[in-house]
Design a protein around this nucleic acid. Sequence first.
RNA 1: GCCCCCGUAGUUCAACGGAUAGAAUAGCUCCCUUCUAAGGAGUAGAUUGAGGUUCGAUUCCUCGCGGGGGUACCA
Length: 524
Amino acid sequence: MKEKVVGALRPLIPEEVTIEVTIPDQEAFGHYSTNVAFKLAKTRGTSPITIAEDIIKKISTNPLFSRVELKAPGFINVWIQDIEYYKELDKILLEKETYGKKIGKKNKKIQIEYVSANPTGPLTLANGRGGFLGDALSNVLDSQGFAVEREYYVNDTGNQVVTLGKSLVANCGHIPFEETFYKGEYVAEWAQEHKEFIEKHKDDPEHVGRAAADYFLSLIQEALEKKAKIHFDRYTSEQKDIHDKKYVEKVLDVLKTKNVVYEADGATWFKTTEFDDDKDRVLITSKKTPTYLLADAGHYLETKERGFYGKVLILGPDHYGYVARIQAVAKILGLEDSRVIITQAVRLLKGGEEMKMSKRKGAFVTFSELIDEVGVDVARFFFLMISPDSHMDFDIDLAREHSNKNPVFYLQYAFVRASSILQKTECGACSDYAPLATPEDTLLMRKLSEFPDILEEVGATFSVHRITQYAGELSRAFHNFYEKEHVDGVEEKTMRARRALVEASQHVLGNTLRILGCSTPEKM
RNA sequence: GCCCCCGUAGUUCAACGGAUAGAAUAGCUCCCUUCUAAGGAGUAGAUUGAGGUUCGAUUCCUCGCGGGGGUACCA
């Protein structure tokens, strides 16, 4: 609907001025509102009022609007003709679960990499936050016509695997324990269960580490796919897909041809300072081992070679320092659209006191445990409500209490109520929506039509939490409608119109839940 | 030290530079002969401080004050 409003204004506004159209928080200011008059006033040197008056004169005859109004100091507020909303209802009833999706060729390949937790232990809450975000963002981009690949990059080789192996060997008492080793319960458990295996391979910690890593990865996969419903198209193996396929060597050659590589102090460096980094970074150490940056660069090259025009990398707060250098890689390789989203920390509280999460120290509540505690829909919705930039406090003691009061139930309950009405009423198709005249009817009707606009906006800005916001507004509109208006037991024409409205609501409520990755229960 | 994020109701979070700063939850008052009360109506409650830019600042800039994270030839 927003698109139509912009379309009506477009011919009147110079091309270089972007037209912003918002939905005012109160109906007295119109269904839609724009501030273009303010923007034009700046360049033209006339008052916003004069400009707005001029624009209003020209659009007031447009059949799209039922009313157009100037509001001081220069807002242009418009009301949409009912017929436009009726058309939208028809569209929803026709398109059903595809309403809001952009159909057509999916020729833009974009890769979303998320979680990518090292297989050295269970998933943390921070991993989960990025996981939910990546999963939901993938759903949105998919709906907006991108060919999305959901990727988990598995660091299944290198130093940390050796360290994990050594931690296990040390756990069985074959070598002394060192400060850098992994300490969690999970390490001790695995060591206990594989005593003989570890003893046999105690001189090859990498072998031990790899076996354990394989096991931890299988646990992670199970927790993600089955429990958290966070899905991936591809688990890319650093060893098999990058090292074995020579991407490390290949990318080094590429970087060299771009003149951004030099030798110093026996190491090979990448001139990332030319790309807003604080300092240059090492690609190959003086001991002639490649760093993770080089392997990751190989990974980016592999993505680029498989035809992706863009990549979104979702990382936890501990990887902030990595952004500049990986963006340098993306730029050099010519990846058209490379974005990095840093999710801020999830602070875990217990009875109001902070609990430190640390894989190495082993003191933490895992992502799986959280889901066991509150359920996947609640955890997902709660995490997705919050902007990735916000630090997040999660009190595990209040978790169950939160779960009983979580807004996701409010949304699901609206869906259940809609489904229930549809089951209990029966009538033919509706051809006349005019009986939808009460404030509750029309507010709900208008709210439904916002759904495609929200998806489009999130597709462009990646602000997934806007969807959970919208979900709250939509379900509120529905519950209000449900309380005040009846479908059953009213006059035939009204019943037909209302039932159609309920059916449309059920589709949009369902679509909202599905795009967030939450379930759509028929009963609660 | 330097870099990044955050600071909004008692609490957890919203608010492309827009209009009377929104929700949820906790509190208080009401509403179940009604398509599921996991609901609805009402009430009370907030922008860390000082400057600046602007017609307009929670939002942008500067400086404080708080909290978190990052600053390896580790990953």
